[in-house]
Design a protein around this nucleic acid. Structure first.
Length: 413
RNA sequence: CGGGGUGUGGCCCAGUUGGCUAGGGCGUCUGGUUUGGGACCAGAAGAUCGUGGGUUCGAGUCCCGCCACCCCGACCA
């Protein structure tokens, strides 16, 4: 992508109606645009990152046998009444159609996926199975805040699994747990993301959350110094030591909830009379699990975690572009390198603007935060070299022009 | 939903006890000079002062309602 035709711009000033670091920075760098409280547009740069996050999640969901679907955001009142959540789920956005029928904007999809699964699953032969989607969710938060971390509309991956028994759910649950660890590690958040024991809400005694440690977090967790498992604040009173290793050296930290997995049991299969016939032809309960993770919240969390005074420092696999290429008084050679990199399969943001000073281009590159940066200047062209720098490091190095592609192939990809 | 705060060109702000054609910076456009960390000069465009009502000879400024946004709290399957 050439910077000269990218339709967004960076800004020197931060919007005053936004105080969270992630939203301020993402708006300034041209990744998102604010439409209302907790409502954002994803711009080309932001959408690229969001899609990369989603794709990592998608790959890991596919790897545990999840089958991707896309359920509606507009959901009829009747399904919510079946589970008694029309009246009791106060974050539901409700609306009325012109036919005076009532709807809710999907805040979660148990009410949709359960009847869906019921249509196709009647026998033990059909079990187990899991479906997921990556979709916009709506929650009428009393107060949206913290930029992308608590919006009223946000992207969510929700996986639902269906089982013949509690044992089968338990073993699948462990598989998904492992998949989640892989996801956070691929997103660059592995070392600072803890699995925590959290309230099970209406479904069970405990659920598990995945919490990424950052001061921007809304939650307090208590991390076991030995095994890195943590406990959420809401259950610290009843669970005073580590549930895994029993030790009581717990350290309080602020964190963002970046995932939550639940054993639903029969909480949703029962209200919909969703059963199956076992080998003996006897009717049995379907046991369910659900597993959520929010790509847009993760995007905001990454910005909160990986930054310096100049801007964002994207982890390699989620950066909007692999390489930020800057031309300085030398557009001919830079253009040539741009084309070479593109045909070699790199994603490149090429700042080809004549009117921008080098300082402006460098500041933009630091703000946008692509992992690697190349500078092609007249001086470098004369010396047959290109300047290479990692966003996370202080020093740059010179790469021989003739070695450039090979170097990048080894180093960047 | 309770408490507090803020609304002035695209963005950040100034605007005195109410007073004349509402200012500045950033950005944008034109021309010229520049270029290793957000360049400079000259010119230009761009504003229902959140919105509705009221007080007044006169309202960005005072009063009332509403709306939006931010912060603290509550809430957060």
């Amino acid at each position: 992508m050439k910077r000269s035709i990218l339709f967004t711009k960076t800004s020197k000033t931060t919007p005053k109606d936004e105080t969270s670091f992630n939203a301020q920075t993402l708006i300034r760098a041209g990744f998102i645009d604010k439409v209302g409280a907790g409502i954002y547009t994803f711009l080309p740069l932001g959408l690229k990152v969001l899609n990369k996050i989603s794709n990592i999640i998608r790959e890991e969901m596919n790897a545990v046998g999840g089958q991707e679907v896309l359920m509606p955001a507009l959901t009829p009142k009747s399904v919510w009444e079946a589970t008694d959540r029309w009246a009791n789920f106060d974050a539901l956005f409700k609306l009325t159609g012109s036919d005076s029928k009532e709807y809710a904007l999907g805040a979660t999809h148990e009410e949709i996926v359960t009847p869906l699964a019921q249509r196709f699953c009647t026998s033990y032969k059909n079990l187990p199975f899991a479906v997921y989607q990556i979709q916009t969710k709506f929650r009428n938060e009393k107060r949206a805040k913290a930029g992308l971390i608590r919006g009223r509309e946000f992207l969510m991956k929700d996986l639902y699994s269906f089982h013949v028994s509690q044992e089968d759910l338990d073993s699948y649950y462990e598989k998904v747990k492992e998949a989640y660890f892989k996801i956070y590690s691929r997103l660059g958040l592995g070392d600072i993301t803890h699995i925590t024991y959290a309230s099970g809400g209406a479904f069970s005694k405990y659920s598990h959350e995945f919490q990424t440690v950052t001061d921007a977090g809304e939650d307090l967790i208590y991390v076991c110094k030995k095994c890195k498992v943590a406990i959420n604040k809401e259950i610290i009173e009843e669970q005073k030591n580590c549930p895994e290793c029993g030790c009581n050296e717990l350290e309080e930290k602020r964190a963002v909830e970046v995932g939550n997995i639940f054993k639903l049991g029969t909480k949703f299969s029962k209200p919909f009379n969703f059963n199956y016939l076992d080998k003996d032809g006897k009717t049995q309960d379907i046991i369910m699990g659900c597993y959520g993770i929010g790509p847009s919240r993760i995007l905001g969390t990454i910005v909160e975690v990986y930054n310096d005074q100049k801007g964002i420092i994207w982890p390699k696999d989620v950066a909007p572009f692999n390489i930020h290429l800057i031309s300085f008084k030398q557009n001919e050679e830079a253009e040539k390198i741009y084309k070479e990199l593109i045909s070699a399969g790199f994603e490149v943001l090429y700042d080809d603007r004549d009117e921008a000073s080098l300082g402006e281009k460098l500041n933009d590159a630091d703000l946008i935060g692509c992992t690697y940066r190349l500078i092609v200047s007249q001086k470098n062209v004369d010396l047959n070299q290109v300047e290479f720098k990692e966003r996370s490091k202080d020093n740059s190095e010179m790469i021989k022009r003739s070695d450039l592609l090979q170097f990048l192939k080894e180093y960047v990809s």
